[in-house]
Design a protein around this nucleic acid. Sequence first.
DNA 1: CCATTGATTGAGTTTAAACTAAAATATCAG
DNA 2: CTGATATTTTAGTTTAAACTCAATCAATGG
Lengths: 117, 117
Amino acid sequence: MDAAILDAIASPRRREILRLVWNEEQTAGAIHRAMPDVTFGAVSLQLRSLVQSGLLEARAEQRNRFYKARREALGPVAEMLERMWDDALWKLKLAAELEQTRRGPAPRKRRGRKRKS
Amino acid sequence: MDAAILDAIASPRRREILRLVWNEEQTAGAIHRAMPDVTFGAVSLQLRSLVQSGLLEARAEQRNRFYKARREALGPVAEMLERMWDDALWKLKLAAELEQTRRGPAPRKRRGRKRKS
DNA sequence: CCATTGATTGAGTTTAAACTAAAATATCAG
DNA sequence: CTGATATTTTAGTTTAAACTCAATCAATGG
């Protein structure tokens, strides 16, 4: 309802999530798998922030947590997003943007040992 | 054109500016006078960023610089903004938000001296 | 119970955004 | 030229966003 919405959709990452769960619910894991350039933790944090600002709803089922967009909460913004996603131009721009927008902590120091695997 | 638009409108400050110059051009000074809680410099920087992302156009006339929104550049976003501004609910939210969103450097230390060059 | 899988949480790091204050630039007036 | 007015620019500061890594929690299956 408030303008936290605009903040939410300003982030390419959150927009990507929003799109993934726009038409059908997805588990946190599935969402993470769709964006392998960040950790599961990072995704979880964004999911939390989206839920907190009312843009997603979460449903727990067994080990999984399903997330889904609350389109009603987006008001005029929902329409705008859909139009953006339908627009081929925007699509290209977005791809380029995600590539470039990676700021965060910058991959540096190696510290944690034992990544195991 | 790109999604810098979403970034631009995510900021309450930039949204405020955008609205001020939506229907008629305004000088930088007038814009600043409309938001006395920040310095002229801060306003000027935002104006610059808005021009750079193509959302405003600037015109110089004598000592003054007139700014005006480039609505065409906003695409689907323009419509959304207008609807937001027409919506009484949003109006209230925004007021509250501007009050609260003041982050920036927090007024503190005194330092800078002698710019010299 | 123990290991595994799915997800959240917490602590710490890096970076960029949004400011401020002061200096610089530009235009005009006398 | 000097000074005033309008605006931009530069440099420095604070804060929050977006991450990472590791620890933890929860449910399930042997």
